[in-house]
Protein backbone atom coordinates (compact mmCIF):
# COMPACT_ATOMS: atom_id res chain seq x y z
CA UNK A 1 0.00 0.00 0.00
CA UNK A 2 1.28 3.45 -0.77
CA UNK A 3 2.18 5.73 2.08
CA UNK A 4 -0.48 8.27 1.18
CA UNK A 5 -3.09 5.56 1.28
CA UNK A 6 -1.92 4.35 4.66
CA UNK A 7 -1.89 7.89 5.94
CA UNK A 8 -5.38 8.46 4.71
CA UNK A 9 -6.60 5.33 6.38
CA UNK A 10 -5.10 6.38 9.67
CA UNK A 11 -6.74 9.75 9.31
CA UNK A 12 -10.08 8.15 8.50
CA UNK A 13 -10.02 6.40 11.85
CA UNK A 14 -10.05 9.77 13.56
CA UNK A 15 -13.09 11.85 13.96
CA UNK A 16 -13.75 14.06 11.01
CA UNK A 17 -13.90 17.07 13.25
CA UNK A 18 -10.26 16.79 14.30
CA UNK A 19 -8.99 16.35 10.77
CA UNK A 20 -11.05 19.25 9.55
CA UNK A 21 -9.63 21.48 12.26
CA UNK A 22 -6.17 20.66 11.08
CA UNK A 23 -7.14 21.16 7.49
CA UNK A 24 -8.72 24.54 8.19
CA UNK A 25 -6.05 25.70 10.61
CA UNK A 26 -3.33 24.82 8.19
CA UNK A 27 -5.00 26.30 5.13
CA UNK A 28 -2.42 29.02 4.80
CA UNK A 29 0.44 26.67 5.43
CA UNK A 30 -0.87 24.07 3.06
CA UNK A 31 -1.63 26.49 0.30
CA UNK A 32 1.85 27.83 0.10
CA UNK A 33 3.57 24.55 0.82
CA UNK A 34 1.46 22.50 -1.55
CA UNK A 35 1.61 25.14 -4.26
CA UNK A 36 5.36 25.19 -4.02
CA UNK A 37 5.53 21.41 -4.17
CA UNK A 38 3.21 21.31 -7.15
CA UNK A 39 5.23 23.95 -8.93
CA UNK A 40 8.33 21.99 -8.20
CA UNK A 41 6.91 18.81 -9.66
CA UNK A 42 5.65 20.68 -12.69
CA UNK A 43 8.97 22.39 -13.24
CA UNK A 44 11.18 19.38 -12.93
CA UNK A 45 10.12 16.21 -14.61
CA UNK A 46 13.33 14.49 -13.75
CA UNK A 47 14.74 14.00 -10.30
CA UNK A 48 18.11 15.70 -10.50
CA UNK A 49 20.41 17.90 -8.48
CA UNK A 50 18.54 21.08 -9.27
CA UNK A 51 15.32 19.48 -8.19
CA UNK A 52 16.82 18.64 -4.82
CA UNK A 53 18.25 22.11 -4.44
CA UNK A 54 14.86 23.67 -4.88
CA UNK A 55 13.28 21.13 -2.58
CA UNK A 56 15.87 22.06 0.01
CA UNK A 57 14.72 25.66 -0.21
CA UNK A 58 11.06 24.77 0.21
CA UNK A 59 11.85 22.85 3.38
CA UNK A 60 14.09 25.58 4.76
CA UNK A 61 11.30 28.07 4.11
CA UNK A 62 9.16 26.01 6.49
CA UNK A 63 11.73 26.66 9.25
CA UNK A 64 12.63 22.99 9.36
CA UNK A 65 16.22 24.01 10.03
CA UNK A 66 19.33 23.75 7.92
CA UNK A 67 20.81 20.69 9.58
CA UNK A 68 17.64 18.61 9.47
CA UNK A 69 16.99 19.60 5.89
CA UNK A 70 20.48 18.54 4.81
CA UNK A 71 19.97 15.21 6.54
CA UNK A 72 16.58 14.78 4.96
CA UNK A 73 17.77 15.57 1.46
CA UNK A 74 20.62 13.13 1.80
CA UNK A 75 18.26 10.36 2.86
CA UNK A 76 15.89 11.25 0.07
CA UNK A 77 18.61 11.03 -2.52
CA UNK A 78 19.47 7.56 -1.28
CA UNK A 79 15.85 6.49 -1.17
CA UNK A 80 15.25 7.74 -4.68
CA UNK A 81 18.21 5.71 -5.91
CA UNK A 82 17.17 2.62 -3.98
CA UNK A 83 13.61 2.63 -5.23
CA UNK A 84 14.72 3.81 -8.64
CA UNK A 85 12.30 6.71 -8.66
CA UNK A 86 12.46 8.79 -11.80
CA UNK A 87 9.26 10.73 -11.64
CA UNK A 88 9.25 13.81 -9.45
CA UNK A 89 5.65 13.38 -8.35
CA UNK A 90 6.58 10.13 -6.65
CA UNK A 91 9.24 11.92 -4.67
CA UNK A 92 6.61 14.05 -2.96
CA UNK A 93 5.16 10.96 -1.41
CA UNK A 94 8.56 9.82 -0.18
CA UNK A 95 9.07 13.25 1.34
CA UNK A 96 5.90 13.11 3.40
CA UNK A 97 6.81 9.62 4.50
CA UNK A 98 10.23 10.84 5.62
CA UNK A 99 8.76 13.82 7.43
CA UNK A 100 6.51 11.58 9.50
CA UNK A 101 9.46 9.27 10.06
CA UNK A 102 11.73 12.08 11.25
CA UNK A 103 9.06 13.12 13.64
CA UNK A 104 8.34 9.75 15.17
CA UNK A 105 11.77 8.17 14.91
CA UNK A 106 11.48 4.67 16.33
CA UNK A 107 8.60 5.57 18.58
CA UNK A 108 5.45 3.58 18.25
CA UNK A 109 3.15 5.83 20.20
CA UNK A 110 1.58 8.24 17.82
CA UNK A 111 -0.49 10.75 19.72
CA UNK A 112 1.14 12.04 22.87
CA UNK A 113 -1.32 12.40 25.69
CA UNK A 114 -0.99 14.50 28.80
CA UNK A 115 0.57 12.59 31.68
CA UNK A 116 -2.40 12.92 33.96
CA UNK A 117 -2.54 11.28 37.34
CA UNK A 118 -5.87 9.47 37.32
CA UNK A 119 -6.27 9.22 41.10
CA UNK A 120 -5.45 12.62 42.45
CA UNK A 121 -4.13 16.00 41.54
CA UNK A 122 -2.12 16.53 38.34
CA UNK A 123 0.06 19.61 38.08
CA UNK A 124 1.02 21.02 34.68
CA UNK A 125 3.64 23.75 34.44
CA UNK A 126 3.74 26.10 31.44
CA UNK A 127 7.02 27.69 30.41
CA UNK A 128 8.31 29.69 27.43
CA UNK A 129 9.71 32.98 26.20
CA UNK A 130 7.71 36.22 26.17
CA UNK A 131 4.68 36.53 23.94
CA UNK A 132 4.34 32.93 22.76
CA UNK A 133 0.85 32.51 24.15
CA UNK A 134 1.25 30.68 27.47
CA UNK A 135 -1.73 32.30 29.18
CA UNK A 136 -3.99 31.85 26.15
CA UNK A 137 -2.98 28.19 25.87
CA UNK A 138 -3.79 27.65 29.55
CA UNK A 139 -7.24 29.13 28.99
CA UNK A 140 -7.86 26.85 26.03
CA UNK A 141 -6.52 23.74 27.78
CA UNK A 142 -8.60 24.50 30.87
CA UNK A 143 -11.65 24.55 28.62
CA UNK A 144 -10.68 21.28 26.98
CA UNK A 145 -10.11 19.50 30.30
CA UNK A 146 -13.29 20.88 31.79
CA UNK A 147 -15.24 19.57 28.82
CA UNK A 148 -13.77 16.17 29.62
CA UNK A 149 -15.38 16.46 33.03
CA UNK A 150 -12.31 17.36 35.06
CA UNK A 151 -12.15 19.91 37.85
CA UNK A 152 -9.53 22.43 36.77
CA UNK A 153 -7.79 25.23 38.69
CA UNK A 154 -5.34 27.86 37.47
CA UNK A 155 -2.36 29.39 39.29
CA UNK A 156 -1.33 32.90 38.18
CA UNK A 157 2.43 32.44 38.36
CA UNK A 158 3.20 35.32 35.98
CA UNK A 159 3.62 37.98 38.63
CA UNK A 160 5.97 40.05 36.50
CA UNK A 161 4.25 41.24 33.34
CA UNK A 162 1.75 44.05 33.66
CA UNK A 163 -1.80 42.75 33.29
CA UNK A 164 -0.83 39.06 33.19
CA UNK A 165 -2.81 38.11 36.30
CA UNK A 166 -5.92 39.90 35.00
CA UNK A 167 -5.51 38.15 31.66
CA UNK A 168 -5.57 34.74 33.35
CA UNK A 169 -8.55 35.82 35.46
CA UNK A 170 -10.51 36.72 32.33
CA UNK A 171 -9.79 33.23 31.02
CA UNK A 172 -10.83 31.75 34.38
CA UNK A 173 -14.19 33.57 34.15
CA UNK A 174 -14.72 32.60 30.53
CA UNK A 175 -14.05 28.92 31.11
CA UNK A 176 -15.55 28.89 34.59
CA UNK A 177 -12.59 27.72 36.67
CA UNK A 178 -11.02 29.08 39.82
CA UNK A 179 -7.81 31.14 39.67
CA UNK A 180 -5.31 31.28 42.55
CA UNK A 181 -3.38 34.55 42.54
CA UNK A 182 -1.17 36.90 44.51
CA UNK A 183 -0.46 40.52 43.72
CA UNK A 184 1.84 41.68 40.91
CA UNK A 185 5.49 41.46 41.83
CA UNK A 186 5.11 38.68 44.39
CA UNK A 187 7.14 35.46 44.42
CA UNK A 188 5.90 33.11 41.67
CA UNK A 189 6.96 30.02 43.63
CA UNK A 190 4.72 31.15 46.49
CA UNK A 191 1.73 31.54 44.16
CA UNK A 192 2.24 28.05 42.76
CA UNK A 193 2.64 26.68 46.31
CA UNK A 194 -0.69 28.23 47.30
CA UNK A 195 -2.21 26.93 44.08
CA UNK A 196 -1.22 23.38 44.99
CA UNK A 197 -2.57 23.70 48.53
CA UNK A 198 -5.86 25.11 47.24
CA UNK A 199 -6.17 22.47 44.54
CA UNK A 200 -5.49 19.74 47.10
CA UNK A 201 -8.03 20.99 49.58
CA UNK A 202 -10.71 21.47 46.91
CA UNK A 203 -9.99 18.05 45.47
CA UNK A 204 -9.26 19.42 41.98
CA UNK A 205 -8.11 17.07 39.23
CA UNK A 206 -5.75 19.37 37.35
CA UNK A 207 -3.82 22.51 38.29
CA UNK A 208 -2.46 24.54 35.36
CA UNK A 209 0.42 26.80 36.40
CA UNK A 210 1.20 29.94 34.41
CA UNK A 211 4.67 31.47 34.58
CA UNK A 212 6.16 34.72 33.31
CA UNK A 213 7.69 34.65 29.86
CA UNK A 214 11.48 34.79 29.96
CA UNK A 215 14.22 34.70 27.36
CA UNK A 216 16.24 31.54 27.82
CA UNK A 217 19.58 33.30 28.10
CA UNK A 218 18.60 35.13 31.30
CA UNK A 219 20.29 32.92 33.85
CA UNK A 220 18.60 34.38 36.91
CA UNK A 221 15.14 34.02 35.45
CA UNK A 222 15.82 30.44 34.42
CA UNK A 223 16.97 29.71 37.97
CA UNK A 224 13.73 31.18 39.25
CA UNK A 225 11.84 28.77 37.01
CA UNK A 226 13.87 25.81 38.27
CA UNK A 227 12.92 26.88 41.79
CA UNK A 228 9.22 26.95 40.90
CA UNK A 229 9.57 23.39 39.66
CA UNK A 230 11.38 22.31 42.85
CA UNK A 231 8.60 23.77 44.95
CA UNK A 232 6.04 21.75 43.01
CA UNK A 233 8.05 18.54 43.37
CA UNK A 234 8.50 19.15 47.09
CA UNK A 235 4.73 19.28 47.55
CA UNK A 236 3.92 16.34 45.27
CA UNK A 237 6.93 14.11 44.54
CA UNK A 238 5.75 12.95 41.11
CA UNK A 239 4.70 16.46 40.02
CA UNK A 240 4.81 18.40 37.78
CA UNK A 241 3.20 15.67 35.71
CA UNK A 242 3.86 17.66 32.57
CA UNK A 243 6.07 20.63 31.82
CA UNK A 244 4.80 22.16 28.60
CA UNK A 245 7.01 24.52 26.61
CA UNK A 246 4.94 26.87 24.50
CA UNK A 247 6.62 27.71 21.18
CA UNK A 248 5.44 30.34 18.73
CA UNK A 249 5.13 28.73 15.29
CA UNK A 250 6.64 31.84 13.69
CA UNK A 251 9.88 31.36 15.63
CA UNK A 252 12.87 30.32 13.59
CA UNK A 253 16.01 28.48 14.60
CA UNK A 254 16.01 30.03 18.05
CA UNK A 255 13.23 27.60 18.99
CA UNK A 256 15.86 24.91 19.26
CA UNK A 257 17.84 26.98 21.75
CA UNK A 258 14.62 27.60 23.68
CA UNK A 259 13.81 23.89 23.81
CA UNK A 260 17.33 23.02 24.97
CA UNK A 261 17.64 25.64 27.67
CA UNK A 262 14.14 25.31 29.08
CA UNK A 263 14.64 21.54 29.18
CA UNK A 264 17.80 21.95 31.21
CA UNK A 265 16.01 24.12 33.74
CA UNK A 266 12.67 22.36 33.95
CA UNK A 267 12.83 19.02 32.14
CA UNK A 268 10.26 19.88 29.47
CA UNK A 269 7.99 16.93 28.68
CA UNK A 270 6.04 18.34 25.78
CA UNK A 271 5.61 21.24 23.39
CA UNK A 272 2.60 23.37 22.55
CA UNK A 273 3.01 24.91 19.11
CA UNK A 274 0.98 28.11 19.12
CA UNK A 275 -0.21 30.43 16.35
CA UNK A 276 -0.02 27.79 13.65
CA UNK A 277 -2.95 29.41 11.83
CA UNK A 278 -0.77 32.10 10.26
CA UNK A 279 1.50 31.44 7.32
CA UNK A 280 4.26 30.07 9.52
CA UNK A 281 4.98 26.38 9.27
CA UNK A 282 6.53 25.60 12.63
CA UNK A 283 8.85 23.18 10.86
CA UNK A 284 11.34 23.50 13.70
CA UNK A 285 9.27 21.03 15.77
CA UNK A 286 10.53 18.30 13.46
CA UNK A 287 14.10 19.17 14.33
CA UNK A 288 13.31 19.48 18.01
CA UNK A 289 11.62 16.12 18.14
CA UNK A 290 14.45 14.64 16.12
CA UNK A 291 17.29 16.06 18.19
CA UNK A 292 15.84 16.41 21.67
CA UNK A 293 13.00 13.84 21.55
CA UNK A 294 10.49 16.29 22.94
CA UNK A 295 7.08 15.57 21.43
CA UNK A 296 4.53 18.17 20.41
CA UNK A 297 1.41 17.59 22.49
CA UNK A 298 -0.86 20.41 21.33
CA UNK A 299 -1.14 22.97 18.59
CA UNK A 300 -2.95 26.32 18.70
CA UNK A 301 -4.90 26.79 15.48
CA UNK A 302 -6.87 29.97 16.16
CA UNK A 303 -8.09 32.48 18.67
CA UNK A 304 -11.27 30.75 19.81
CA UNK A 305 -11.35 28.88 23.10
CA UNK A 306 -11.86 25.63 21.19
CA UNK A 307 -8.91 26.17 18.88
CA UNK A 308 -6.46 23.97 20.74
CA UNK A 309 -5.90 20.52 19.30
CA UNK A 310 -3.99 17.46 20.37
CA UNK A 311 -1.08 17.14 18.01
CA UNK A 312 -0.84 14.21 15.68
CA UNK A 313 1.99 14.12 13.17
CA UNK A 314 -0.12 12.22 10.67
CA UNK A 315 -2.74 14.94 10.71
CA UNK A 316 0.01 17.55 10.60
CA UNK A 317 1.60 16.07 7.50
CA UNK A 318 -1.84 15.32 6.06
CA UNK A 319 -2.67 18.97 6.61
CA UNK A 320 0.43 19.95 4.67
CA UNK A 321 -0.24 17.66 1.75
CA UNK A 322 -4.02 17.26 1.97
CA UNK A 323 -4.86 18.21 -1.59
CA UNK A 324 -2.18 16.04 -3.04
CA UNK A 325 -3.15 13.06 -0.94
CA UNK A 326 -6.79 13.31 -1.92
CA UNK A 327 -5.80 13.54 -5.55
CA UNK A 328 -3.42 10.65 -5.44
CA UNK A 329 -5.65 8.25 -3.50
CA UNK A 330 -8.73 8.96 -5.59
CA UNK A 331 -6.67 8.26 -8.68
CA UNK A 332 -5.72 4.91 -7.17
CA UNK A 333 -9.29 3.90 -6.55
Amino acid sequence: MSFFKKLKEKINQQTEQVTDKFKDGLTKTRDSFATKMNDLVAKYRKVDEEFFEELEEILISADVGVETVMELIEELEMEVKRRNIKDTSEVIEVISEKLVEIYYGDDEQEVEQLNLNENGLSVILFVGVNGVGKTTTIGKLAHMLKEEGKTVMLAAGDTFRAGAIEQLEVWGDRVGVEVVKHSEGSDPAAVIFDGIQAAKSRGADVLLCDTAGRLQNKVNLMNELAKVKRVITREIPEAPHDVLLVLDATTGQNAMSQAKTFSEATDVSGIVLSKLDGTAKGGIVLAIRNELSIPVKFVGLGEKVTDLQAFDANSFVYGLFADMIDQSTSADE
Binding site: S61, V129, D248, T250, G252, A255, G278, T279, K281
Partner: peptide, 12 residues
Protein backbone atom coordinates in the same frame (compact mmCIF):
# COMPACT_ATOMS: atom_id res chain seq x y z
CA UNK B 1 8.45 42.30 15.06
CA UNK B 2 9.86 39.62 17.32
CA UNK B 3 13.60 39.26 16.60
CA UNK B 4 13.26 35.48 16.88
CA UNK B 5 10.92 35.22 13.90
CA UNK B 6 11.98 32.67 11.33
CA UNK B 7 11.46 32.40 7.58
CA UNK B 8 7.94 33.79 7.90
CA UNK B 9 9.24 37.27 8.75
CA UNK B 10 9.17 38.24 5.06
CA UNK B 11 5.50 37.33 4.67
CA UNK B 12 4.53 39.22 7.81
Amino acid sequence: VDAMTGQDAVNV
